[in-house]
Computed example of a mutant assay.
Amino acid sequence: MEQLLLERSGNKCELCQSAAALKIYEVQPQTSHPEDNTIVICDKCIAQIEKTEEADLKHLGFLRTSIWSAIPGVQVVTWRLLNRLKGESWAVDSLDAMYLDEETLAWAQAGADEDNDAVEDIHKDCNGAPLQAGDTVVLIKSLDVKGSQLNAKMGTVVKNIRLVHNNTDQIEGKIEGQTIVILTKFVRKQGA
């Protein structure tokens, strides 16, 4: 079956058309037609589908063309990714242009994210670079710390930050030995 799928795909990712690092991917939940619900995709697309890396809107631009695929598995994955990106006007337009028969739509909905409208909990700096616990950031603005005489000057380096759970706009870090909460819009990831 792998050879049939590679021939069908032309040895390219059936989503983004990349020829790099191709894998056979089973679109869940499986139906009774394995050739329809198994597709050939690249590692980058797998990472986007499985959310093992942050959504890459530039890469996901392929969704504008994959909506026209006749392969049910590609249709289902495309529909699910577009629903995840409902905050983007181009994604909404692509969803509106897309047609799925009832059976394929039911399959797409059956394996869709439980909360399609949820924004992924990713802390980002002022430039949109993802922040992780332990990163080092630089203040891009001088900040007065509430309830303290401390004034954190622009350019101050804050090492080993902690992410504030349930609030992607805040991180914690130590400045002059004092742990403070800092808004992510006032920091730049060092090296970014």
Rank of each mutant, 00 (worst) to 15 (best):
T136V: 12
Q149E: 14
V40Q: 07
Q170I: 01
G177R: 02
R188C: 09
L63G: 03
V157K: 13
S89R: 14
V138D: 11
I175C: 01
H165K: 14
I41T: 11
P29N: 05
D144M: 12
V119T: 12
D125H: 09
R188I: 14
W90V: 03
V92R: 15
Y99N: 12
N11W: 11
A112I: 05
E53N: 04
D144A: 14
Y25P: 01
E103V: 13
D96Y: 04
R84N: 12
N11E: 10
L139H: 06
K189D: 13
G61R: 10
S142C: 07
K51D: 13
L105F: 00
G87Q: 13
L60Q: 13
Q28R: 01
N151R: 11
A91D: 11
T179G: 07
D125S: 10
D169G: 12
P72C: 06
N37M: 04
L82W: 01
D121R: 09
R64M: 11
V138M: 14
I41V: 14
G61I: 04
T38N: 06
A70K: 08
G87R: 14
H33S: 13
A97W: 02
H165E: 15
N151T: 15
T31A: 02
I175V: 15
M1C: 01
E35M: 11
A21W: 00
E54M: 06
V77A: 09
S32R: 06
N116Y: 05
Q132P: 06
D117V: 02
